Simulated scan of single mutants.
Amino acid sequence: MQRVADAWALRVRGSTWDEIAAAVGYANGPNALRAVRNYVGRLPEPSMPELRSLWRERLEFLWPVAVRDAESGKPGAMRAAVAVAQRAAQLDGLDQPQRVEVNASAAEIAQLVNLLSRSQGGATEADVFELDVIDAEVIDG
Rank of each mutant, 00 (worst) to 15 (best):
D69L: 11
V36P: 03
V113L: 06
G14E: 08
L91F: 07
V65C: 03
A123N: 08
G121I: 07
A22N: 13
R79N: 13
L91P: 05
M78T: 14
R56P: 02
G76K: 01
L131A: 12
G141F: 03
E50I: 08
V24E: 14
E45H: 01
A22P: 06
A88R: 11
W55T: 11
F61Q: 15
L10Q: 14
A83P: 00
R68M: 09
V65A: 09
A110P: 00
W8Y: 15
L10F: 07
D135C: 03
A35M: 04
A23T: 15
R3P: 14
L91I: 04
E125D: 07
W55L: 14
Q2H: 15
F129A: 10
A123G: 02
D140P: 01
S105E: 02
R13C: 08
F129Y: 12
Q120S: 10
V40Q: 11
A35P: 04
L94Y: 14
R42N: 04
E60F: 09
G41P: 12
E60Q: 14
A7C: 07
A81N: 06
G141K: 02
A126Q: 07
L62K: 13
D6G: 15
I139R: 08
D127T: 01
A110L: 13
V36D: 09
V84S: 00
A32N: 04
I134L: 10
V128Y: 04
W17S: 01
A32C: 02
E130L: 08
A85G: 12
